[in-house]
Design a protein around this nucleic acid. Structure first.
Lengths: 245, 245
DNA sequence: TTATGTTGTCTATTTTATTAGACAAGTAGA
DNA sequence: TCTACTTGTCTAATAAAATAGACAACATAA
């Protein structure tokens, strides 16, 4: 409900009007301006506010309902279902499960797949290896209260951590698996944060609406001596999470 | 060039196919996969790769050319113009001008406007004030090499910093203006990072293509004793910048 | 010059997005 | 029950996105 844009400029945007309306309403909800249980303005009023037809507003509301952000009841109105964004803390010691403790009842991390591959230039430079070195690549999906919250790709040197994937599969925790190699502690060396639209695969695994925005974090964790242990590329739905430094 | 999406699902997305194609190509460029000067594949090949019509690809390329990301020459092809993203470092000591030094030749910060207003709940809690307290609000635009890179809204307690706006206008540097009040040094207490689409105003002042994605940083700077000095809400074009923690 | 591959431009058609209006069906309070 | 307001559903018309095909204009190398 933050912006009102005339439909005459829609052809410049490449983003459908109903989606811009849905984005604006969702922004107020995940930003905390509207609390769960609150009733949204009526469809006619929203149509006026966005200078759009009521049918266009209805399409936006239908999309938000499909996302689980609101719930619409005939004769009564639309009501906010989803709470505001949860925070993911980034610091020297960044641990996924510790991080969301207190903000969700159940937290889980699943391994989607793993494979052995040759390090690309970016992976090699992050891990301090030569390009082409054998590395283990893990694909994981993390959830809070059964809602997918993070899709990560993780690379580790195969020579340093042989068999990492099978150990991780038994107990899908990075901290625990590293401990099994004698790494008692590790620290976050650097984090690069960017944002972009989700692709088809990410839309599916994270159960997002097409066109959703992701926060992308590229991080390197090192041992206490500063030697790179792993390189992680994590994608967070921007509507569900914010990163706190 | 990362994803290939069938056009049959476009009606679910709310984002036009030509814009999804433009986003994919731009992502490869700002991500460093394509260097300035590189030639893109021909329109016919791109059309095949994205399962789209050549006219649709042409519209995507036209949009990228209007953004200044590529340049198209008849009979020759399309060539990458823009370099990869620049990095904005976030840490205990975060200073805009120091941060981009070395990545751009000229760096400037302009004040767009200032006004006195009553603190909203979120501003008040960030600055440790009571809601409704008088605060100065600055709207600034920062550029590197004459390219707008950051649009920020900054709030400070009016009682603590009377006249801040006029002092800032004379020398538009936060560090320098705080120094004029006897604040020799200050530190970043917290930063919250999220992402969303740009609204109409941001699209205009940051000279972005409609529908562009912004990285949003909400930060509180404090004096060395930990007392909040200012609250800043900065928006960075996600295609031009990445945040490094 | 010629052959080939590239981008530029035109017309036409189909599909989707958006608008417009009318009325049914549900809710809540007087 | 009655009234006023809400969401749900239908038909229809217009605007924009996307596809399809043909050919012109330009660049490059043989």
């Amino acid at each position: 409900m933050t912006k009102t844009e005339s439909s005459s400029e829609s052809h410049l945007s490449g983003v459908a009007l109903w989606r811009r309306i849905a984005d604006a309403i969702r922004l107020d909800i995940v930003g905390g301006k509207r609390q769960p249980g609150d009733r949204l303005p009526g469809e006619t009023e929203l149509a006026e506010r966005f200078s759009a037809n009521r049918h266009t507003v209805r399409r936006a509301l239908a999309a938000l309902q499909a996302e689980g952000v609101i719930r619409t009841e005939q004769g009564r109105g639309s009501f906010v279902d989803q709470a505001r964004r949860v925070s993911y803390r980034i610091g020297k010691r960044t641990r996924f499960s510790e991080n969301l403790a207190g903000q969700a009842a159940t937290i889980s991390r699943d391994m989607l797949s793993s494979r052995l591959e040759n390090a690309t230039a970016s992976v090699a430079s992050a891990l301090g290896l030569r390009a082409g070195t054998k590395v283990t690549r893990l694909e994981t999906l993390s959830s809070a209260d059964n809602r997918p919250m993070s899709r990560a790709s993780i690379w580790l040197s195969y020579a340093t951590f042989p068999d990492f994937a099978t150990r991780f599969m038994e107990n899908p925790s990075i901290t625990a698996t590293l401990a099994s190699y004698g790494i008692a502690d590790y620290a976050r060396a650097s984090t690069r944060i960017s944002a972009r639209h989700a692709d088809a695969d990410e839309t599916a695994t994270l159960k997002l609406a097409p066109g959703a925005i992701l926060l992308v974090s590229e991080a390197v964790d090192t041992d206490l001596a500063g030697k790179p242990l792993l390189y992680a590329l994590s994608r967070f739905p921007a509507d569900l999470m914010e990163l706190v430094v």
